[in-house]
């Protein structure tokens, strides 16, 4: 326990020192890794802890991005105000979907398809709203990039790096305590067997709603980060089902329901993806699609041969 804590602190310290060594490219890859680790951790609360398979988490990223981004774009409301608005909007979206699904007893594959349907429905809706700029997109004003302006979330890449690192660390700590609290126990009970959970006095509906609310609220931070890091939003991209798949890749590859899974998965997948890009460039094979084919093959291999993910495999092997 203390050894793990010491290792984690050492990891955090070295991550904090990273911007001093890494160049712009290294930093952008690190930001990408941490972004997927964070979003994966948020998804993991709903699926890994409470067993509710969402294949539409891009919905929360998109809604949060558009709420905070739109407030900034149209009314010059700084993201420090836009963030709480985005969190509230996303949580409401999650609660509505959860309420409908759980009241009508939608579960398993059907629940997963319902989450896809809501994400797609919203995507097409946002494509036809004038306020979002529709398919033409919404472009946030890029201000100067030298000084840290946290209220407007404008600054050099290092600021974004530290922001996402802080989000990741906080999410990790929050999940650590959640898992050991009543909520964590109740969620896992629901994941394992709903009838048995209910017989032990657990209000299954209410605790599933709590899981959806927690997960969507956490995901909304990722959405706001996304909006102000990339500064452009297109419904077609941000709500796309492949964004939802990207979010769940890291925890599934790393280990669903584990604390380290999303982080490890994000490192492996992003590293792999960048590695493939680099080596293909070195070989001169820059044909569109080649990279994703390799990526898919590796994914296939991991899913087939490490069905519980990499982290449970490693922790068994090295007794972590």
């Amino acid at each position: 326990m203390t050894r793990t804590a010491a290792l984690l602190l050492a990891l955090l310290a070295s991550l904090a020192a990273l911007p001093a060594f890494a160049g712009p490219y290294g930093l952008s890859v690190a930001i990408l890794i941490l972004y997927f680790a964070y979003a994966g951790q948020a998804w993991n609360v709903m699926m890994g802890f409470a067993g509710q398979l969402s294949l539409g988490h891009a919905l929360y990223v998109g809604v949060a991005g558009y709420v905070a981004g739109g407030l900034f774009f149209h009314y010059e409301v700084p993201p420090i105000v836009g963030l709480p608005a985005a969190v509230i909007a996303c949580t409401l979206f999650g609660l509505v979907i959860g309420f409908l699904a759980f009241r009508f007893r939608i579960s398993g594959v059907y629940f997963a398809l319902l989450t896809i349907a809501f994400a797609e429905f919203t995507r097409i809706g946002f494509d036809h709203l004038a306020w979002t700029g529709g398919p033409g997109g919404m472009f946030l004003k890029v201000a100067q990039r030298n000084t840290w302006d946290l209220a407007n979330f404008r600054g050099p890449p290092a600021m974004y790096y530290y922001a996402i690192l802080a989000m990741c660390s906080l999410a990790f700590v929050a999940c650590f305590f959640l898992l050991r609290s009543k909520a964590g126990f109740y969620w896992q009970a629901i994941r394992e067997n709903e009838d048995a959970a209910q017989a032990l006095g657990i209000n299954v509906f209410r605790w599933k709603m709590a899981a959806v609310a927690a997960s969507s609220a956490m995901t909304s931070f990722a959405g706001v980060f996304f909006a102000f890091y990339y500064n452009n939003l297109f419904p077609e991209q941000i709500f796309n089902i492949s964004r939802s798949i990207e979010i769940i890749l890291a925890p599934v590859i790393g280990g669903v329901g584990t604390l380290f899974g999303p982080i490890l998965g994000a490192v492996v997948l992003t590293g792999l993806s960048e590695g493939i890009t680099e080596s293909l460039a070195a070989l001169g094979w820059e044909i569109p699609g080649v990279k994703q084919v390799f990526y898919g093959l590796v994914l296939l291999g991991v899913v087939m041969f490490l069905p519980n993910g990499i982290w449970p495999f490693l922790s068994r092997k090295f007794k972590l």
């Binding site: 398979l53 294949l55 997963a112 798949i245 769940i248 890749l249 599934v252 994703q292 084919v293 990526y295 898919g296 093959l297 994914l299 296939l300 899913v303 087939m304």
Partner: peptide, 10 residues
């Protein structure tokens, strides 16, 4: 889901 998504990506 992940298995078939991997196949779909390929």
């Amino acid at each position: 889901f992940m298995l078939l998504v991997a196949i779909a990506i390929i």
